[in-house]
Design a binder for these strands. Structure first.
Lengths: 212, 212
DNA sequence: CGGGATGTTGAGGCAAGTCAATCTAAGTGG
DNA sequence: CCACTTAGATTGACTTGCCTCAACATCCCG
């Protein structure tokens, strides 16, 4: 029933409009989920990593988003129909999935709040803090954030342009809030100031993400 | 187990940070769900009406949003703990709730896309179309949209200001796209043009909304 | 018939978008 | 190992759309 799967960096796991055949559990790597609008704007609805679920059980099997790998990815694929039956027969699993889905709704609330706030500094500060909390390695310094995705990905996730993202990164550096070790590693030197900029003290902890 | 409940226009059903005691199923009226940021910005994450579920089963019982009635509201309240047990014992219900939650995630994707698109005209055009599809009375003309919420609600939902919302309404009227019968009733005179402005041909149908 | 809440309209500033040039880093092949 | 290429990131100058502040209009309810 479960199938191991490997994808190369840049591969498309499924495409907007596809009939979803599998439900995936990611074990390694990073995936971006995005929707393309008719005027070719790309909105990245989320990033998924190890432990996250890709391709939920919704009414329609047709996907609204494209899932594309950012790095090499390993995943466990479950046949969609079989998965639904399995979930139906296992109340505990079903309830856990319901909780996970509900937590995901809340995570989307947080992101909506981010997008609705106009200022770019707020969006980026919040993004950095969320990233820091979500994928910090146990042994690693909590203030060191690895950002595997490029500037275009960040921009399309936060509703900004590449240029603005880059400028705000520069601004943070000049203000001594961060330090850049190359474009993909950021050290948060002044967390309180960043929390202040982001404008929220607390946001719900995210245990497992779901992407559709 | 189920308790009938009535609320007056403007009542708070639950408040951001509260421990959620009930899960509600709305039977009458309209509710706004919003989060207040530390700098007192109000982001309305959604509106809920008859048939929608308010207060899901998430990991933490602490709410992230405030639920406030826009009109008089009737609801059916289920004790949260009992509800969870009941759901656990009824696989079909559990699976249905999972599907509903997953659909809600997708609806939040659509809203994120709205917020990330910069132009106010797009956001409002899309909002009108979504409203039109969601709460059209069977006997009513499909092009007549009732908007029970005020401009401030729309603005805080779309990440705009009251003034901008008002201006765009005016602009639509001048362009012959809509006709206003008072500020709370809009007639969509040119649907194709509005779809074009909104920038999406199709968005997932929404059967039931969930709010947390 | 007031008075408060809600909605509309106008003038001006500013943050982010757009367009374009430059810089950097990572490959790639001779 | 180095010249070349290319994708990605940065920086700069200019423009535009929304926000801000403010005045005014309208509606509703006592």
């Amino acid at each position: 029933m479960a199938v191991g799967m490997c994808f190369r960096k840049g591969d498309v796991i499924f495409k907007q409009g596809d009939e979803l055949a599998y439900v995936y559990v990611l074990t390694q790597g990073l995936v971006r989920l995005y929707h393309l609008t008719v005027d070719a704007q790309r909105q990245i609805t989320g990033f998924l990593g190890p432990g996250d679920i890709l391709g939920g059980i919704k009414r329609s099997a047709e996907t609204y988003c494209t899932a594309e790998t950012i790095t090499d990815v390993e995943a466990c694929g479950f046949d969609r129909k079989g998965f639904i039956e399995f979930v139906h027969d296992h109340p505990d699993l079903c309830l856990n999935l319901l909780v996970a889905a509900t937590d995901e709704i809340e995570a989307q609330y947080v992101h909506s709040i981010l997008l609705a706030r106009k200022q770019a500094t707020r969006r980026l500060a919040a993004f950095l803090l969320i990233m820091a909390r979500r994928w910090q390695s146990p042994g690693e310094d909590a203030r060191t954030v690895r950002i595997p995705m490029g500037r275009a990905d960040i921009a399309d996730h936060l509703g900004l342009t590449i240029e603005t993202v880059s400028r705000v990164f520069g601004q943070f550096k000049r203000q001594g809030l961060t330090e850049l070790r190359g474009p993909k590693t950021v050290i948060l030197k002044n967390m309180p100031a960043l929390y202040d900029l982001a404008g929220f003290e607390d946001f719900p902890e995210r245990h497992m993400a779901m992407g559709l």
